[in-house]
């Protein structure tokens, strides 16, 4: 058994703009089942952080409980981290985010962690449009507790135990759009070409960026009858669009036919250029986004891609008008401005 990843890395791998190497974004060696989709999702997160040149210590990775929620052990070894209790990741991120708004908050959760025990937490974090990237690794089951169907398992899907799931499934993307998330996407752990740029766009967005990553459980839910298997997802997914993530400062060079390209400028002035299959659907239109999801579901297809963006969304800090300076850096002088200041406030209220 290999417990430590060898320390050697390919000598020709270049550093990123901030001078970090890919290795600086790695974590410990995975103990998940071999072939678990979560590992690929983690690799995509590592790649996205590397490509965006985010200093690793400017990231906080926070999770709940589950195989997916073990991810903080497997990525971003130099970032801040907290492996919280089941379903409680959003509260911990909320607290941390309130204290220090200057970090990139990476919430990692599973479909069980989010859609069952953590459903309430999820709903309210989205409602508040908390500034975070919420990665929900969706395998349709509770992997860690041996594969019981989760609330995202499709009705009729058949996992390893052979009995079909009889309950209606929850589509967290639809709910996220309805509850006010400013960025919603769906992707597949086995498609890094789509997932990495999507993660980068999500990291550039200010406010709740929710990504549902279908991430097969090889051990309990990769059966021929499962709608969350590698095979099924590959056969039944359809992308709304292909898109390029163009970081701020980089010249936009791609050139598509009129009408099929839609550019969305994100908060940090980076741009998402979408090359759409259907030019009438606008990614910034909430109603159309939900309709598109429902239409594909009716056809038995999984819709992937950037589903919805509100480039002007306001995050919790803006909504509740907190101090621009992170709260954890405010000293006693800022917090207790003294009697004089109190008197002047009182005065203004008279």
């Amino acid at each position: 058994m290999t417990f430590f990843r060898p320390s050697f890395r390919h000598p020709d791998l270049p550093p990123n703009d901030a001078g970090y190497y890919l290795k600086d974004y790695e974590g410990g060696i995975s103990t998940l089942c071999a072939g678990c989709g979560h590992d690929s999702t983690n690799a995509a997160i590592i790649q996205a952080c590397f490509e965006l040149s985010i200093p690793p210590h400017k990231i906080a990775k926070i999770s709940g409980i589950g195989c997916s929620s073990k991810s903080p052990a497997y990525l971003l070894g130099k970032a801040h981290g907290f492996n919280s209790v089941h379903g409680r990741m959003p509260s911990i991120v909320t607290g941390a985010n309130m204290a220090n708004r200057d970090l990139l908050y990476l919430g990692i959760s599973g479909d069980g962690d989010t859609a069952s025990i953590g459903m309430g937490q999820f709903a309210h974090a989205v409602r508040r449009n908390l500034n975070m990237v919420y990665v929900m690794m969706n395998n349709g089951c509770y992997g860690l507790t041996k594969g019981q169907y989760s609330a995202t398992a499709d009705k009729g899907s058949v996992g390893k135990k052979g009995e079909p799931n009889m309950l209606e499934s929850i589509d967290l993307c639809e709910i996220a759009i309805q509850l006010g998330a400013g960025f919603v996407g769906r992707s597949f752990s086995g498609d890094k070409r789509q997932l990495v740029p999507m993660l980068k766009a999500a990291m550039s967005h200010t406010g709740m960026a929710f990504i549902d990553v279908i991430s097969p459980c090889v051990t309990f839910n990769n059966t021929p009858g499962s709608t969350k298997s590698y095979h099924w997802v590959r056969e039944h997914s359809e992308a709304t669009n292909t898109f390029d993530y163009v970081p701020f400062k980089q010249e936009i060079t791609t050139d598509y036919e009129d009408g099929t390209t839609e550019s969305v400028v994100l908060h940090d002035n980076s741009v998402i250029q979408l090359h759409k299959k259907d030019s009438s659907i606008h990614v910034t239109d909430r109603r159309q986004a939900v309709d598109a999801l429902e239409e594909h579901k009716e056809k038995g297809l999984i819709l992937t891609g950037v589903l919805y963006i509100d480039p002007d969304s306001e995050d919790t800090h803006r909504i509740i008008n907190t101090s621009r300076q992170p709260l954890n850096t405010l000293g006693k002088k800022d917090l207790c401005p003294g009697n004089e200041a109190l008197q002047s406030i009182n005065e203004s209220m008279r």
Partner: peptide, 15 residues
């Protein structure tokens, strides 16, 4: 191979 990418992701040398 089921193209799960596990080998790609775990290879320390990106071979």
């Amino acid at each position: 191979c089921i193209e799960c990418d596990a080998c790609v992701d775990s290879c320390p040398e990106r071979c």
